[in-house]
Design a protein around this nucleic acid. Structure first.
Lengths: 292, 292
DNA sequence: GCACTAGCCTTAGTTTTTCTACACCAAGAA
DNA sequence: TTCTTGGTGTAGAAAAACTAAGGCTAGTGC
């Protein structure tokens, strides 16, 4: 009964957004990353929503969460709603005609590959303002406010992806190290530089090339590939080079091939675009200049 | 240029909601009422959104706001998005099978008309928990979490509305006053009770009946019709009675007709339901018992 | 069998945002 | 003129959201 004095409020929008992301990823940490907050924030949002609904939406296990049937049943309608919201947000942003052109890219790509091309693009299209955001995982271009992303991936053949170059890897090092290796007993005592995000590069290469390399996993670790590249240039050790990212260094002979064999990783440097209807007008020009 | 360190954030969801309501009503006060906040809150949300977009969405005039062309262009996509959100919210709420059945009604209806029927309905359907919210304006049943609303309105003929009774008005007063009027010179010196939300009732009636009543606009004013009814029962003056709301008092002769002529206002007491797909399973039973 | 580690989520407390109350302004109505 | 209506600005209060630190569980090494 009870004549309620207050209007019954709908569920909090931010909690709904958190739930949508968590349900899609089936993982609070991933959702947190996507929304740029800590997992705790997601946890609380979900709890608030569960409290509002009076039903648990996730089952919490030690090794992660899983959706309850109730939670599962909400996924389609929630995803549809936030797709629509993203469209609305995009419409709002596109009111400003010369808003920044937002590019998302892997940190390594943003630092090693993009600057040169961007400089040229800026000369061609000085009226466009670019903004580059580095991140580990490709964002959803339908949901987030990016106009273009550049990541390593296996192209899916859709028309919204353009493969720019195969990802080919080969061991490289500074000239001084190469000399030293020739004089002494090869590369045995030269440290191997590891990049955290591409930890299995050495394994991939050695397997592919058939070279039984006893990988020195204890070598220096770098959280950013560009740091590893700088160290390699400074003769700190052997780097597994992603050729498209170190073109300049190879050309200027700041880095040299330490072995004659290279190997493709199977992935490519891929430019992804939002669906046609959501693309900015400048997109095609930018893409043309990027893939020159 | 600029390698942005932070992910570009989308617009704040709550500000988007505020905008949607404001744009639909073209009125910040109405939007504030709808969202149960003060107009200041709406104003700030809109300002934030305009700041985010970099474009004004409303033109502020002294006597109200109007949408700019940019703002206007957003209305369809925003409305669609929040329709979807409302569906998602409803799906969330409906996970709990025995959630309260929410009824929205005019305060007068909630206090004078509903209690009797609700008592009977509760006897018939004891498993349903009812919650009644009084408000001046009918809520959007697709957007807000109500399952049913009861207001005075001109029925639109849609299948989601059921007209329960015509709204018929006639002057009434307590028996003692009627006696006094008969003894002395009629109703001249008996005060007229006014309800703030139905201020023109007296005008409507006198015009319709052709009775040239010099309306004493200086009579006591009541913000709630039920207060005026109580005062009338206590012999405080003449009340313009909405017959369907004072059935009991008329039957028990606590209030009597002060004039033989009654007049329909053209409106009816109307039950509104959400669209079929959004109705709770209990809805039809409740409606049947309400309209018995 | 017992520590140790690595993921992943939750809790407590703090920071940030959002809301309200109220004063104020401008334009039209009485 | 004064009143009314609708919006804005601000300071303080309330509420929401966030982060940092902690806890739980499963798997791993000894």
């Amino acid at each position: 009964m009870s004549v309620a004095p207050k209007r019954p409020k709908g569920p909090p929008l931010n909690a709904m957004r958190a739930f949508e992301a968590a349900a899609r990823n089936v993982n609070f940490v991933a959702a947190a990353e996507e929304l740029n907050v800590t997992p705790g924030a997601i946890s609380q949002h979900i709890k608030a929503l569960e409290g509002w609904a009076g039903t648990p939406l996730f089952r919490r296990n030690a090794q992660g969460v899983e959706l309850t049937p109730e939670g599962q049943s909400l996924v389609p309608v929630f995803s549809a709603a936030f797709d629509q919201m993203a469209d609305a947000a995009r419409a709002l942003r596109d009111l400003k005609p010369n808003a920044d052109f937002h590019i998302a890219a892997l940190p390594a790509v943003a630092q090693l590959w993009l600057p040169k091309r961007l400089r040229r693009i800026r000369e061609e299209l000085p009226e466009i303002n670019f903004s580059v955001t580095a991140m580990e995982n490709p964002p959803s271009l339908s949901r987030e406010m990016f106009d273009l992303s550049i990541f390593f991936a296996v192209p899916d053949g859709s028309s919204n992806q353009i493969a720019l170059a195969q990802d080919v890897i080969a061991p490289v090092c500074a000239p001084t190290l190469l000399d030293r290796a020739h004089c002494s007993n090869g590369f045995r005592e030269i440290p191997i530089l590891h990049d955290q995000t591409w930890n299995d590069d050495w394994f991939t290469w050695s397997r592919n090339v058939g070279f039984d390399l006893q990988i020195d996993a204890s070598g220096p670790q770098f959280s950013l590939y560009s740091l590893a590249v700088e160290e390699a240039k400074a003769s700190a050790g052997l780097l597994m080079g992603h050729l498209c990212l170190i073109e300049d260094a190879l050309e200027s002979k700041t880095l040299l091939f330490a072995h004659s064999r290279s190997c493709p990783t199977g992935r490519s440097l891929v430019v992804s675009l939002p669906s046609k209807t959501r693309q900015r007008s400048e997109t095609s020009q930018v893409v043309a200049l990027l893939s020159n």
